[in-house]
């Protein structure tokens, strides 16, 4: 079966600067939290072998820079992503508000075949901190409105829910692959598909 061949899952982590993308990735891959990480410039990545059900897959996690001026740069590696993780900081409302634009930008740049059903996962990070600015309910509502994106509340510092979240990410990424692999193999150049990929409108006209 074609699906057996590609065991590499490509996951992109997006979100405002300082929400804890790098910390989450390192907590998951290296199981440690350190306050010695530098701000991410450009892009960075780590890999990890994971077991999903009875299959071993390699997860390639791409960490990106969060400052706004980098948002539309260096996005070459968005293409071919299997899952996109959107991170915000539950104590900083702005980081939540910008999820929309991160999601939009990702869909434009990665141009997946079926943008409606592309797997996203949302992580509300730093739940160990007080006071909270974004309630669980509010975050869930947003996720529901975007075609039921799975939502997790995590703490990279306390290693809270990180494992579970990434398990779900792996699962979602895998399902995306099972879904699309056949199509990809028919058309040798996946990029050419993207030109005709329909964009859903009406999701970006908040007044």
């Amino acid at each position: 079966m074609a699906t057996r061949k590609k065991v590499l899952l490509k996951v992109i982590i997006l979100g405002e600067s300082g929400v804890g993308k790098t910390s989450l990735m390192n907590q998951y891959v290296n199981r440690k939290f350190s306050n010695q990480y530098k701000a991410t410039i450009g892009a960075d990545f780590l890999t990890k072998e994971v077991q999903v059900d009875d299959r071993i897959v390699t997860m390639q996690i791409w960490d990106t820079a969060g400052q706004e001026r980098f948002q539309s740069l260096g996005v070459a590696f968005y293409r071919g992503a299997d899952c996109c993780v959107l991170v915000f900081d539950v104590t900083a409302p702005n980081t939540f508000k910008s999820l929309d634009s991160w999601r939009d930008e990702f869909l434009v740049q990665a141009a997946p075949q079926d943008p409606e059903n592309f797997p996203f996962v949302v992580l509300g990070n730093k739940v160990d901190l007080e006071p909270r600015a974004i309630s669980t309910k509010r975050a869930q509502q947003w996720c529901q409105s975007k075609n039921n994106i799975p939502y997790f509340e995590t703490s990279a510092k306390e290693a809270l829910n990180v494992e579970q979240a990434f398990q779900s990410i792996a699962r979602n990424a895998l399902s995306q692959q099972n879904h699309t692999v056949d199509l990809y193999s028919e058309l040798p150049e996946p990029i050419s598909l993207t030109k005709t990929a329909p964009r859903n409108n009406g999701d970006s006209c908040a007044c």
């Binding site: 410039i41 450009g42 892009a43 740069l73 070459a76 590696f77 293409r79």
Partner: peptide
């Protein structure tokens, strides 16, 4: 691989410091 664009931003912006 689309590599130049992935790698070089950090090379340039931090003059290799990062």
């Amino acid at each position: 691989l689309g590599m130049i664009h992935i790698i070089s931003l950090s090379w340039f912006l931090t003059i290799f410091l990062s």
